[in-house]
Write a protein that binds this DNA or RNA. Structure first.
Lengths: 214, 214
DNA sequence: CCCTCCATTTTGTGATCACATCTGGAGCCA
DNA sequence: TGGCTCCAGATGTGATCACAAAATGGAGGG
């Protein structure tokens, strides 16, 4: 049998879920975008049934908002909510980084540095979605080493909720260079500097979002 | 119109969701319990459609586990997973408590003390589910004052995942008296002692779960 | 006594339909 | 122009059905 895993396999509702989740997390949909069951079903060539299940799942994770009448949109977050989600990131992610620290062998840090140069490429291309995607890949590469799947899942849920907002935010800040905190994270990892790593991750996680709320 | 809110109102899938979620969070179902769409539908007098949506939502929150073949059971957590969830609680809940501290007026603390005596009653009745319910009410009463809905939702998700395990755990520890950490929390609130509150909440949150893993 | 195999039953998945409700805008009046 | 009513189309909800895959349980053989 040897696990085929043909990338687009499995139940239709799960395929829909993964596809939509990825698009939302990476900021491919703007905040406030309306989605309909029949519309999504038409786009993916399936009936409403699997679409409803995928939507229900995404709503449960906060990736989508549900109006009182059942209409589904991407979330348009208030500033208070954005600050709160940033606070959650600054609680979870330093902990994940510190747990990964003893397991972060040099090859891993090299890989993170490679992702950093990929981020720089996305910046010069002005590709918001690509920037978000590679930025999250930088963080996930480190956190995977923490051996803490529940905590990582929770962090990803927060990323998901911030996805559409991140896209809108990216347009405002006209970034021109790689965030310096990523370099600080890499050096702290190389030096085995736990307090420095905590600070660098916390700073990186809150930097972009503070200016929006301010 | 004046929002009727007849307690059992709204869409069937939502009613199912709330009901099952409450039962799971409060430990009314043992770990590893199997649930079927047709079975739940029969119990609640609805078809499979709304049941599927409620299940999908609960699975997304980690309240239920989904096997590779789509079978649904209450989660049977490994010790590693339990420790990890306890670690998440010890990150989120002290923060919630500290945020609530400046808003915790005396009447609120009185109410928490009243809940404490209710917990003591559940203990003498040997009512595991009642104990879990009132214990969570103690925490939620405080955290609601933190004005941090996203963080509270995240904490509740962790409670939900631990629900069935808490039930199994309760049987092992044969509690005879009120956890002393609840008293410490109340005094720290009265004294406005932020570091003390942090410590007391962290201790309360990890106390029961450590002995299971140990 | 334990294991294997096969038929039966159970179970999840997805499509389709009927229905109640909501949305959005045209049309109208002040 | 501004605000209101009202209706046609769009939308979410739930029931039912057909189907394939998986679990179940018992017969048969080692």
């Amino acid at each position: 049998m040897l696990n085929p895993l043909p990338e687009g396999a499995g139940a239709a509702h799960d395929r829909l879920y993964r596809n939509l989740r990825s698009r939302i997390m990476h900021g491919e949909l703007p905040p406030g975008e309306a989605l309909t069951l029949r519309g999504i079903g038409r786009d993916y060539g399936v009936s409403m049934t699997p679409v409803r299940e995928a939507m229900r799942r995404l709503v449960a994770e906060g990736a989508l908002s549900l109006s009182a009448s059942g209409r589904i949109t991407t979330p348009a977050l208030s500033n208070d909510r954005i600050e709160e989600l940033a606070a959650i990131r600054s609680l979870l992610e330093p902990e994940l980084a510190v747990r990964a620290l003893p397991r972060a062998h040099p090859a891993l840090v090299d890989r993170m540095e490679a992702i950093n140069t990929a981020i720089a490429e996305q910046i010069v291309k002005h590709d918001a979605s690509g920037y978000i995607r590679t930025n999250l890949e930088f963080h996930r590469t480190l956190y995977l080493r923490a051996q803490a799947p529940a905590m990582l899942a929770m962090a990803e849920t927060v990323w998901l909720q911030l996805g559409p907002t991140m896209r809108a935010l990216y347009g405002r800040l006209n970034r021109t260079e790689l965030p310096k905190n990523h370099r600080l994270i890499v050096s702290a990892l190389r030096a085995g500097d736990e307090p420095g790593l905590r600070l660098a991750v916390r700073a990186d996680v809150t930097q972009g979002l503070r200016l929006l709320a301010g």
